[in-house]
Amino acid sequence: MQTEELDKEDQALQALLKDYPVPEASEAFYDQALARATHEGSRRLRNRWIMTGFGSAVAAGIALWFVGGFLMNTPDIPPTEPGIPGVTMTLEDPRTVNLVFASATALDSAILTVTLPDGIELAGFPGQREISWQTSLNEGKNLLPLELIAVSPIGGEVLARLEHKDRNRTFRLRIEVT
């Protein structure tokens, strides 16, 4: 009897897994991905030649850099310091804050570090004050959704620091907790 139930569950699981969908990509997405691949692939090949021919110092000298960050949502608390946007959060209530990094050129192997004040956590990283990961930026606007949770009413400032080679930019976001 127990074996029969296990068999039934196995069959149900197999059917469920077989039916577990993957979203379909559109032809337009494929076209775009192929175009990006040829563009970015060519750029990397060119960079490889530049690095080989002239050395990394010259390559670093001609590399374009511009990156700026801003908050996608309208800031909902007036800035106490010019240029620093802020959001209000409710204690224990997760809120997604979308930061957008605008880059004039595609950047590979950038390091993004989010530093959190005491009392603010990033969903999925409980108790961590600093979370770092490697990423790449496409040319144009790049979105960073951060799901923040206020675990104490202190609030503070969230820093998102983007580093690429010897350059870096830090984006500041003020959090108030009600």
């Binding site: 996608m72 979308n98 957008v100 990094f101 993004l112 979370i131 990961w133 490697q134 990423t135 790449s136 930026l137 496409n138 144009g140 606007k141 790049n142 979105l143 960073l144 959704p145 951060l146």
Partner: peptide, 17 residues
């Protein structure tokens, strides 16, 4: 894996949010 498991940056397209 770390990069792809935790990567959170992607290009913004209209309506994607």
């Amino acid at each position: 894996r770390r990069r792809f498991a935790r990567r959170r940056l992607h290009t913004v397209h209209d309506g994607e949010l």
